[in-house]
Amino acid sequence: MSRNRLSGPLDDVAGDAGHVAHPPRVGFFTDTSVCIGCKACEVACKEWNDVPEDGLDLLGMSFDNTGMLGANSWRHVAFVEQPRVTGRQDPGFDGLPTGTSGIPETAGAVEPRLREAPRGGSELGTSPLPPGGPEPQELGMPGFDRPGDLADAGTRTDFRWLMASDVCKHCTHAGCLDVCPTGALFRTEFGTVVVQQDICNGCGYCVSGCPYGVIDRREHDGRANKCTLCYDRIGDGLEPACAKACPTDSIQFGELDELRERADRRLAQLHDLGVGEARLYGRDPDDGVGGDGAFFLLLDEPEVYGLPPDPQVPTRYAPSMWRRAGAAAVAFALAGVAAFAGGRR
């Protein structure tokens, strides 16, 4: 048990944080195979939690104009277009004029511009044209031709959209919580991770401590913000706003043990249906963060959705880092002693 305090599996996270007689750990299971990309979760979250607007930019890459999670977006719906099908689905293109997707061209034009942004595009809603950045580029969009009316018709018979609603993972070993120097971030009795807004002094350490790039400091407010898993709602026996609003039950809220069983059944079902690429992400308590409180069923590699393939909590290396720092400190002290003991000059 004691060796799992910093990383690895941990059965009772709330108990480890000092809660006694606490309710069972809760979380999200986000089944992206049934996500329709409606963004009701993003809207419901903003409405309930009074999260400010995150920029009304068109990001120029897909229907996703949020970009990533951050201080002002606690749910983020990713859109990925791919030239393949899911299982035995029919894209319905047979006999129709089809053409290449515009996505690669726009993505290719947008990406180098993201690097010009002050924080490399990790700010929310980063426009591809930050002020003073590169010149606009003609992409020929929006087009009013039918797909395939232009050159190389017939190249896009296979097609699917991946849509996934991302959220704070409420890690078993949370990097943000571990590094917070004020105690503003804390583990709730439900095993979730929440920022106490009256304590946070905006030091920004959590922003660099999170291996998923979730938490961020809110501009003009100065404090760190992220998903609270609707701490106020679940305390009253309600489900979080995003799960409540999700029309396809892609976002499922519940006790984590039960969600994990449900996810395993859904995965087996999808594999039986021929969707071999389906996989669970963040479900495994043996992963680098001890398993996520909010985990996902994905239809491609995690990085395709902007998720790290093998995240690790930085605290995992804390003992070895302090040992190295201790050795360096001893070397420093010895050099100081040697400076006076050695040269009598």
Binding site: E111, R119, G120, G204, S208, G213
Partner: peptide
């Protein structure tokens, strides 16, 4: 952009960063 040294192919979400840049 064509580069001389072949770079490792890898997946990403439109080339957007996975991590947040430090606020420091």
């Amino acid at each position: 952009e064509p580069t001389v040294v072949p770079e490792a192919e890898f997946g990403s979400y439109y080339g957007r960063p996975v991590l947040k840049a430090p606020v420091w």
